[in-house]
Nucleic acid binder design. Structure first.
Length: 266
DNA sequence: CGCATTTGACCTGCGC
DNA sequence: GCGCAGGTCAAATGCG
């Protein structure tokens, strides 16, 4: 799948999922109620998929069994290193002087430093929720764009996330080069009970108004193409091995086809 | 008063 | 060994 969301590979499950991530082939008359029901159903399926992915990541043995040759070799040859990942986020203009990236964890700042290659100070944070949590976070504004925050996370949390939050996940190229457009965007939200919800295909102006969680921190995370590809790969890998999902998908496709047959009576 | 943040000092790793 | 840069510590400070 390329950066435009188009897929040039032979028909696979990922190709079958394409309608979930892109516009429908042709607009069908659909009431708001129908749309809400359809999106809710997609939410439910994707939430289950994400839960499975996260559960899989938290169990190294499961990863080792899914790719035995690579996983075992790496584990045997290299000492455990803290996992490092980088996230870019666009800060609100009103927060132009702030140097903090809000997310679903609680952080305590323990240092700040001006680095050589960047005029903006780098802030150092530790996870404040669990004293034993080894995760650290570095946040620094981009030297090129002072509204772009670059956060580097080291390590993995050994506890559940605590605060509720909602992220608007966008494609890097989209938000950098087509800012202001109404392209479909995905929303991943995590409520206080730890349940994840993904809403696919709703542009910003189509999203439902904020509910009782309006006070929650909202950050815009720009997903790099590498992260996006890894996420898609993992989703495809997981869903391909989920016979129940494949069965339900086939059933849903069949229903959709039947809907389009002229004269079909519901 | 307690907690989070600030900030200068100190520590550590790396290149020369 | 020395200097530099990044990372961390801890006392001072601010705020609710």
């Amino acid at each position: 799948m390329d950066s435009n969301g188009e897929c040039s590979s032979p028909p696979t499950l990922s190709a079958a999922l394409l309608p979930l991530f892109g516009p429908p082939p042709e607009p069908l008359p659909e009431s708001l109620e129908d749309k809400l029901r359809r999106v809710s159903e997609e939410n439910r399926r994707l939430a289950a998929a994400l839960d499975a992915i996260l559960a899989d990541r938290s169990t190294p043995r499961a990863l080792a069994t899914s790719s035995p040759s690579r996983g075992n070799a790496v584990a045997a040859a290299e000492p455990p290193r803290p996992k490092v990942r980088t996230v870019c986020a666009r800060a609100e203009p009103s927060d132009a002087d702030a140097n903090h990236l809000r997310d679903c964890y609680q952080w305590r700042k323990y240092g700040q430093k001006v680095t050589r290659d960047n005029p903006y100070p780098r802030s150092y944070f530790r996870c404040a929720y669990a004293p034993s949590c080894p995760v650290k976070k570095k946040v620094q504004r981009s030297a090129d764009d002072n509204l772009m925050l670059v956060a580097t996370y080291e390590g993995e949390h050994n506890h559940e996330q605590r605060a509720q939050s909602e992220y608007v996940v966008t494609d890097a190229s989209t938000s950098l080069h087509q800012a202001g457009s109404s392209l479909p965007r995905s929303i991943i939200s995590i409520d206080s009970s730890g349940r994840k919800k993904i809403t696919i295909g709703l542009a910003a102006d189509q999203r439902p108004p904020a509910d009782s969680n309006a006070g929650a921190a909202v950050g815009e995370i720009i997903v790099t193409p590498e992260f996006r590809k890894a996420l898609v790969d993992e989703l495809v890998n997981l869903l391909t091995n989920d016979s129940e999902f494949v069965e339900k998908l086939a059933s849903a496709v069949a229903d959709r086809v039947m809907e389009r047959i002229p004269g079909h009576i519901f």
